[in-house]
């Protein structure tokens, strides 16, 4: 079947199998490999991307369901001049990663958290990231990074493309 999906601002039409998962489409058809597949069972959040303004786990969405949608992956966060998104900058500043495998999903989920609540408490960040697992258990610095990113203002809860992040 044909799908037309805008990823990081670039619209493309592709012929895909109906069973192709969005995570596989992003990695293998679009060649965007920042989106990791961890548990492959909607638990770990490593594959989190933004679809039409909402954070979702792309291992549990069919590419067909995203037909016509706007998708933002980690690759779409950095500006053309190489400037990091406020959440990326905060993860770097606070060392919000250890092995880094969960990081792309954590960053995308954190944008969703900040879109929903621009000034969260420590507890609200933890609850907002309940769907993302860090097997290194590096949660303290991840939470710290999200709180630091919140200080950057509304841009921390937005993605560079036209789509508006709701939550």
């Amino acid at each position: 079947m044909q799908v037309s999906i805008t990823v990081n601002g670039e619209q493309r039409t592709d012929e895909v199998e109906p069973r192709l998962l969005l995570a596989h489409y992003l990695r293998e058809v679009r060649g965007l490999r920042a989106t990791n597949i961890g548990c492959d069972s909607t638990s770990c959040g490593a594959c989190t991307v933004i679809v039409d303004g909402l954070s979702v786990k792309s291992c549990t969405v069919l590419t067909a369901q995203a037909d016509g949608a706007q998708v933002t992956t980690l690759e779409g966060l950095t500006g053309a001049d190489g400037e990091l998104h406020p959440v990326q900058a905060a993860f770097r500043a606070e060392h919000g990663l250890q092995c880094g495998f969960c990081t792309p999903g954590m960053v995308m989920a954190a944008i969703g958290v900040l879109a929903d609540n621009p000034d969260p408490t420590d507890r609200e960040v933890r609850e907002g990231l309940e769907g993302n697992l860090c097997r290194c258990t590096g949660y303290h610095n991840i939470v710290r990074a999200v709180l630091t990113a919140a200080q950057a203002g509304p841009a921390a809860g937005q993605v560079p493309q036209a789509q508006e992040v709701e939550a």
Partner: peptide
């Protein structure tokens, strides 16, 4: 139910 990403779908 689940987590925010799950509840979005």
């Amino acid at each position: 139910v689940g987590d925010p990403q799950v509840r979005h779908r």
